[in-house]
């Protein structure tokens, strides 16, 4: 078991190295980099140094001189020590900005995730129990609609209905204008109110796959021999479903849920951007659309790390939850 974990960890490090190398290369292949335009902007200010001076200075500051490999190892040696440089767009260290905003993303992600679990798993099981029923068809169709909904369209529809037509919720932001004057409880309620639409968007858009996953697995379990045996023994349907079927369905679900945990930190870029929630997704979107290379590198590597962590957790959990896997 430990050998397996250590092996996977080492492999992850190697993969991360190559991912970072590819990301860095993509960034370096950009014809006129951000440095050029930034130098141009700076040199246009009255009384500024010439374009070439600025360019040389910026190139040196950002370590863009030298070959790609040189630059990459320079970047890597800094990054390994947790120094991802200054954000070009926010002009503060990337890591600092990250610490500032990551919890907003985490709160948004976790609320949505918990809601998803609470809604999707019971519905998926219900659909599997009553296969081919009206409920089953409804769940399937709703799940597929959720998968097919473009996030930006659904978010806009929500805004249109609840903010513009009904005027119940605010269009943008995480807090309202008078946030600072509110009591602690009021602050929480205020933030909660602002989170309603983003959370609803995230839940509806991503609930479908979990619902279908639960349903498929439950059906598989329901069709297996031990359920037939349990029924043949004369156990009540309740016991069969709750004790025998559901527990076995949990194996893949726990794996999936465990694997999704790192994703809570990834930030929902589109949703955050549409509702202007100052989370990591919104922050990095703004930075990246402005060509902030340092932020791009940091966020990409961070996401790659989360993906690796997800697969690792899923694999380990699978072994933990299902003893049969451990033996083989």
């Amino acid at each position: 078991m430990w050998k397996f974990v250590v092996k996977r960890l080492l492999l992850s490090v190697v993969i991360l190295f190559f991912v970072a190398l590819i990301l860095y290369t993509v960034m370096r292949c950009i014809p006129t980099s951000f440095v050029d335009s930034m130098a141009r902007q700076l040199s246009m200010q009255p009384g500024a140094k010439s374009f070439d001076d600025w360019k040389a200075q910026l190139t040196q500051v950002y370590g863009l001189d030298g070959t790609i490999l040189e630059g990459f190892f320079k970047w890597l040696s800094h990054a390994a020590r947790g120094d991802f440089g200054d954000s070009w767009y926010y002009t503060i260290p990337v890591v600092e900005k990250f610490k500032e905003v990551i919890w907003n993303s985490f709160i948004l992600g976790s609320i949505a995730f918990v809601l998803e679990l609470v809604i999707a798993i019971p519905l998926g099981i219900l659909a599997a129990r009553k296969q081919y029923s009206g409920i089953d068809y409804t769940v399937t169709v709703v799940a597929l609609i959720g998968i097919s909904l473009p996030t930006f369209f659904f978010a806009t529809l929500l805004k249109y209905v609840f903010s513009i037509k009904l005027e119940w919720l605010e269009l943008y932001g995480l807090v309202s204008r008078y946030y600072d004057q509110l009591s602690p409880l009021g602050k929480m309620l205020d933030m909660g109110e602002h989170l309603i639409m983003p959370v609803a968007t995230l839940v509806i858009v991503s609930i479908g796959s979990l619902m279908r996953y639960t349903r498929t697995n439950m059906l598989e379990v329901m069709n297996s021999d031990f359920i037939r045996t349990a029924r043949a023994k004369g156990l009540s349907e309740k016991t069969v479903i709750n004790k025998h079927a559901f527990r076995n369905t949990l194996i893949p679900i726990v794996t999936l849920v465990g694997g999704s945990l790192p994703g809570l930190f990834a930030g929902a870029m589109i949703t955050e951007q549409l509702f202007q929630i100052p989370g990591i997704g919104y922050t990095s979107y703004n930075a990246m659309t402005n060509g902030d290379i340092n932020f791009y590198m940091f966020y990409s590597v961070f996401l790659a790390l989360l993906t690796l962590l997800s697969t690792l957790i899923a694999d380990i959990l699978y072994a933990v939850v299902d003893p049969r896997v451990r033996i083989s």
Binding site: L11, I15, L23, V26, P31, Y299, S300, L303, A304
Partner: peptide, 26 residues
């Protein structure tokens, strides 16, 4: 398969956004 792992880890949106913003600039 390791190449697949590497590509699987490359985050899509940051790459798409950075390429998009570069194409805008160009």
């Amino acid at each position: 398969m390791r190449t697949v792992d590497v590509f699987n880890c490359i985050p899509t949106w940051p790459i798409l956004i950075i390429i998009g913003s570069i194409m805008d600039a160009q």
